[in-house]
Design a protein around this nucleic acid. Structure first.
Lengths: 150, 150
DNA sequence: AATGAATATTAATTCAAC
DNA sequence: GTTGAATTAATATTCATT
C-alpha cells in the first residue's frame, strides 16, 4: 500500500475512532491487513500535521490539523448560510432544520468538526439531530451555531 | 506563583516564542525566576488543552487549543466586518486598511492565529502590514482574508 | 524515497510530600 | 489540590535496508 493511501486511511480512522496513541493506528491498520510500525505512523502524523489533543475530561485523541478544521467550520458556515431554516435546543439535543437534501452535508461537517460538545449526530433529509454530551454543552453548541449564523 | 498565573504566562509565551518542547517552557519560566518541572508543564498543557503541532517544514511547536483558535478566527471576522476598508497583496506582503484605531486589534488577532503563512505583522492606526513567508503564502493569506469577508 | 528495528528524546504518570 | 523526582509510556529520529 502506498503512503498516500495509508494517509487517506488515517484521515478516515481519525474521524471514526477515538485514537489515543500512535499504536492505536498501528492496530487499526493491522485489522485491515496493513502492516506498519509506530515509526511510520509518527512520520505520517508529522507530514499530515495531525495533533494529539488533550480531552476536556481525560485522555488524549489525535485530530485533524488546525487549518483543516478552520476550513470545515468555514464550509459549515456557508452551507448553513445557504440551507439553514431553523434550529432548536432542548435538554441534550439540538435540532437543525435545513432545506431538503442538505441535512446529510451538515451532519457530515459537524462530525468532521469533532466538537467536544457533540456526542453524535443523526441526519435525515432536511433535519439534523445533534446529541450533545450534556445540557450545558448543548447550550454551548447552540450558541456556536448562532454565532456562525451572525 | 499560583497555577492560574503560571498558565496565563504560558498562554503568553506560546504567542511570543516558538515553543518546541515542554522543556522550553521550563527554561523560559526559569528566566522569569519561576521554578517548575516538566511534570508540571505537562499537567498544565493537558489542562489548557495545548497541542504540539508539526510544522510544515520541520520541527514542532506548541499551540493554543483548537477551540480557542476557532474563536480567534471568529473575532477576526467580526472585527473585519466592522472595520475593514481595503486590502492588497504584493510580493510577500499583504496590507489591510481599516477604520482608524482598528489596526492594532486586527494585528493582534492575526498574531494569535499563528498562521503558517505569516512571518510577522506590523500595525499602525488604520493599517496592518502582514509580512508573509513567501509570495505563495501571501497569496494564500489574501484568499483567506477574502474568504473571511464573504 | 519509504520503511523497520533499535534507540534517543520527549511527554505523561506514579508516588510521595506538602 | 499542587508539585517534584523518578519512572514509565509514548513519540521522534537514527541508521541500515530495500
Amino acid at each position: 500500500m502506498r503512503k498516500v493511501d495509508r494517509q487517506r486511511l488515517l484521515r478516515n480512522l481519525i474521524q471514526t475512532h477515538e485514537i489515543e496513541r500512535q499504536e492505536d493506528f498501528v492496530k487499526l491498520l493491522q485489522a485491515e491487513q496493513i502492516e506498519v510500525t509506530q515509526a511510520t505512523i509518527s512520520r505520517d502524523i508529522k507530514e499530515m500535521q495531525l495533533v494529539k489533543v488533550p480531552n476536556a475530561d481525560e485522555g488524549y485523541h489525535y485530530s485533524l490539523p488546525l487549518e483543516k478544521k478552520l476550513d470545515v467550520k468555514e464550509k459549515l458556515r456557508r452551507t448553513l448560510r445557504d440551507a439553514y431554516v431553523t434550529h432548536n435546543q432542548q435538554d441534550y439535543f439540538v435540532v437543525i432544520k435545513a432545506h431538503p437534501g442538505n441535512a446529510p452535508a451538515i451532519a457530515s461537517l459537524l462530525d468532521q468538526l469533532q466538537s467536544e460538545d457533540i456526542f453524535g449526530t443523526i441526519g435525515g433529509d432536511d433535519t439534523v439531530l445533534i446529541i450533545c454530551k450534556s445540557e450545558e454543552q448543548a447550550k454551548q453548541f447552540r450558541v456556536f451555531i448562532e454565532d456562525l449564523l451572525k
